[in-house]
Write a protein that binds this DNA or RNA. Structure first.
Lengths: 332, 332
DNA sequence: CTCTGATATGTTAGCGATAACATATTGCAA
DNA sequence: TTGCAATATGTTATCGCTAACATATCAGAG
């Protein structure tokens, strides 16, 4: 920057001002500096700037997996909300593990993000402590934690799954099963299962049929294997609720492969409204959960929170509940 | 850090050493410092550290889209390769636009990454200049540029698509069409189309049938619409090569919806071997391109390059060609 | 008992930018 | 013409950490 300043015949402070907007600087000087920058191929060092200004321009975002169209949509919503704000996403993948999340939170905080967005409301005690003491706005998403750390943007996975089972009951299905992963690490999956169990009880259905198969997130392939095992164990079963659309899709395709009519022999429902569910044949009944909106509203909330923090007037903790809807299609 | 130092009765330098491994420090002192850190809830400020050590620990990665399982696999490969190295990905999405790429390269370089990975070999002139002058290892992936900037990890999209068409010809198909997006911004898509055209010419087939539909990346829905238009325009067409598995899947599902037998009425092939292609019914013939390996090998290359850079012995530009293979399944 | 080299710790001086304040310059109302 | 606010630029002192060098301590060889 000193080189640029010398070449433009100004001080470094003026160069610094030329690179930001909102600073008072003569148009002519700015042009001269821009020229010098172009000539020298200078690129601002933002880490140095952050150190001085105490604004890193980072937002830390932790999602369970990159390879999941739901979370991809959420981070797209976030990216879009932050467009033009000068804020940059620092993305991390937890692989559905709270231990990995804890580790990632640590390494993220070392970068001094201005806010942090996490997926879900269950964390290791240490992770929770780190978040609480971080001094930056924290947003928990994709869930409605009973004891939120700060802000929340999400919905109740249990209620959404309850609604889905209720809907299937309304369609006349009575022997409804649930297909999900084997672990409780995927808390959203566990919540959905809880919603299923609640619905079975509330509807007065006698038997709950839970087929746990594979480590979450369960794949399409595992969904296919699960439905075969399900029908072996409970041949009379007339509907299967899958923990995600991906497993529902796998189950559906396996049925087609075996010549099992869907929904005549067995109905299949998913969760998440992945793109694939509206495109495959037959189209899959699912719960649409507005992933993009979760990210986008979290992004907008976070912008307000950061601005508040910066002006010394922190905004109070907010809980934004996003909507979901059962989408009836051809598999039920 | 000064607080921690005071509490542990040492200097800040010793605290700094306690936080890195490889530094000479007494185990007892380290424990005392760790304790003080835990008590005070201190979190190292890495930006300040980077400024001093000139090592930011960032690796910039630009991919066209987050919502594409191919690129998701590539970044997973990268993440895995970098595991434990202390390097952190700085991910950016170009939306298949070179303008956006240029802008992103600028904002990434301001963070002083230690290496940068870009997708494809075509960039705006300014973007190219920025990369060349960046002074860090640059890796172009997913392509074999004729004039690489530095390192390359990829394959020839044209050759891979050529091989696919050749394979279809071997299966007996003669009136082969290509379904892709309308723009040339997606250079990998354009390369695949070129490979198709070359193959048609090389095989002595008389007519090339290119159905361009929608802005890349074309969706499953667009794939479905495209195959309908394709068969309207060229009813005798007996096989369709789609620019990606997603569009192939959409086309396949649309055929099923209309009761068109695949592959009897028309064969369908994709590109990329997305998970979906091996799970749907019938399974889709495609070209497997080893996305994970592209990311993983790029990651390992980059580690060597950074280390070389750091030791003052930059490694020479490398070109790693990853393999691909036509995977014959049930749609052809 | 001294000397040497290894190990452990401290001191000083930045890294490259910006905040905060100081100073020049300008325009325009009185 | 004078004075004062608004605008444009410069100066100085950090931001929080680590490199590089300096110093202290100690074990073991001679």
């Amino acid at each position: 920057m000193a080189d640029v300043a010398k070449r433009a015949g100004v001080s470094t402070m003026t160069v610094s001002r030329a690179l930001r907007d909102g600073a008072s600087i003569a148009a002519e000087t700015r042009d001269r500096i821009k020229l010098a920058i172009e000539d020298l191929g200078y690129v601002l060092d933002q880490s140095a700037g952050s150190l001085s200004s105490k604004r890193t321009g980072f937002v830390a975002v932790l999602i369970p997996s990159i390879n999941n169209s739901n979370f991809a949509d959420t981070s797209r919503g976030l990216t879009d909300a932050l467009e033009g704000s000068g804020l940059q996403l620092l993305l991390g993948y937890t692989d559905y593990s709270t231990e990995k999340e804890e580790e990632l939170i640590g390494s993220m905080l070392r970068r001094r993000p201005e806010a942090i967005v996490v997926t879900g409301g269950s964390h290791t005690p240490r992770a929770r402590r780190l978040l609480e003491k971080s001094g930056i706005p924290v947003i928990e998403t994709w869930d409605l934690p009973s004891q939120p750390i700060c802000h929340v943007v999400g919905f109740s996975n249990a209620a959404a799954c309850f609604a889905l089972v209720h809907h299937l009951h309304g369609q006349g299905y009575r022997r409804i099963a649930f297909i999900g992963g084997t672990s409780n690490q995927d808390t959203r999956g566990a919540d959905r299962r809880a919603g299923y169990e609640n619905a079975i009880a509330a509807l007065g259905l006698t038997e709950s049929r839970v087929m746990s198969f594979g480590t979450p997130p369960i794949s399409g392939k595992q969904g296919g294997e699960a439905i075969v095992k399900l029908l072996e164990q409970w041949p009379a079963c007339d509907a299967a609720v899958c923990v995600s659309d991906l497993s529902a899709f796998g189950a559906l395709m396996e049925c087609q492969r075996r010549g099992w009519a869907v929904p005549r022999k067995i109905a299949i429902a998913g969760f998440g409204d992945f793109e694939i569910s509206s495109q495959c044949h037959p189209r899959i009944t699912t719960v649409g959960v507005n992933c993009y909106a979760i990210g986008n509203r979290a992004g907008k909330l976070l912008l307000r929170a950061i601005e508040g923090e910066h002006r010394g007037e922190p905004i109070p903790a907010e809980t934004i509940i996003t909507d979901y809807a059962v989408i009836t299609r051809e598999t039920t």
